[in-house]
């Protein structure tokens, strides 16, 4: 089933402005897909994310979430129930001073009965591996833990789509790893549709599909391996290759016959195969 659809969407932050942050994007995301959206800062990728759950509505064109038009104000609530969103700064999205109260915030908003909220808190904290912190204070947690609580807060609304707007950008490597593991598991085990906005190339590699944004347009769209194989094109959009892929490319440029590799593991594999061949 089609989860998200953009039809020639344009969006400008200025009223009757010609400066489009998103400029004519058409795309479609199927339910259960894991999509990474790449692009430089200011390329329009965060705007794209906010257009999905009606935090912003298109200036031109149409965005639908499971067939619901985001321009239809009556549908806003229903759209947000289906498409949850986690933001960049882990400190700016918690409303309560106790973890479980914060996770309860969403279900409370949509009027879930009290007993059911308790169950949802349990489920959501379990899904992100934060059960033992149920009564903890968010300000005392690490960045990665805070973001996992934020994800739990969204999960408790039981959405079908999870949008992460640069949610790993402010985390240290350990925190990033924690968050990536959680969202991969959600995607794999629960069939959650994941839309991950990021500028970490190695995170994009873990997705099924990558979309590159440049000056408000979706300029590349395909499996990450395919996208990273088109390195010259990527460079024109001011994006760099994942480091392992860059090394691999250097080897190929010097004439060494190695297969395309994007991660350290693949690179070791490729080098090994090439050295032991013949």
């Amino acid at each position: 089933m089609e989860a998200v659809r953009f039809d020639n969407v344009k969006f400008s932050y200025e009223e009757d402005g010609q400066d489009y942050a998103v400029n004519g994007v058409s795309l479609s995301v199927e339910e259960g897909e894991f999509v990474a959206v790449l692009g430089r800062n200011g390329s329009g990728k965060s705007t794209l994310a906010k257009l999905i759950n009606a935090l912003l509505v298109p200036t031109e064109g149409k965005v639908t979430v499971f067939g619901m038009d985001t321009l239809d104000a009556k549908m806003t609530f229903e759209i947000r129930k289906n498409a949850g969103m986690v933001f960049q700064n882990p400190d700016n999205q918690t409303v309560a001073s106790v973890v479980e109260d914060d996770v309860a915030f969403g279900p409370e908003n949509i009027g879930v009965p009290r007993e059911e909220i308790g169950k949802r808190i349990e489920f959501a904290l379990d899904a992100v591996g934060m059960q033992e912190f149920r009564h903890a204070t968010p300000s005392r947690l690490s960045g990665g833990q805070k973001q996992r609580v934020a994800i739990a807060g969204v999960l408790a609304i039981l959405p079908k789509i999870m949008i992460l707007d640069e949610s790993t950008a402010m985390l240290d490597p350990r925190g990033r790893r924690e968050v990536m593991e959680v969202i991969k598991r959600l995607n794999r085990e629960r069939g959650m549709t994941v839309i991950l906005i990021t500028h970490f190339m190695d995170e994009a590699l873990q997705a099924d599909r990558a979309i590159v944004m440049h000056r408000g347009e979706a300029v590349m769209d395909g499996p990450p391996e395919e996208i990273f194989a088109r390195s010259e094109e990527l460079e024109t959009y001011n994006l760099t290759l994942p480091r392992a892929a860059a090394v691999c490319k250097a080897l190929q440029a010097a004439g060494m016959p190695v297969n395309n590799a994007f991660t350290a593991e693949e690179l070791a594999e490729a080098i090994c195969a090439s050295l032991q061949r013949g």
Binding site: V247, A264, L267, A268, I271, L275
Partner: peptide, 23 residues
């Protein structure tokens, strides 16, 4: 670094590389 991880994996397969770990 990615280079160090890769070097480690190569070492396990008997390929030793002495590098400063820049790409």
């Amino acid at each position: 670094p990615v280079t160090a991880r890769c070097a480690l994996l190569l070492k396990e397969r008997g390929i030793g590389i002495e590098t400063d770990y820049t790409c």
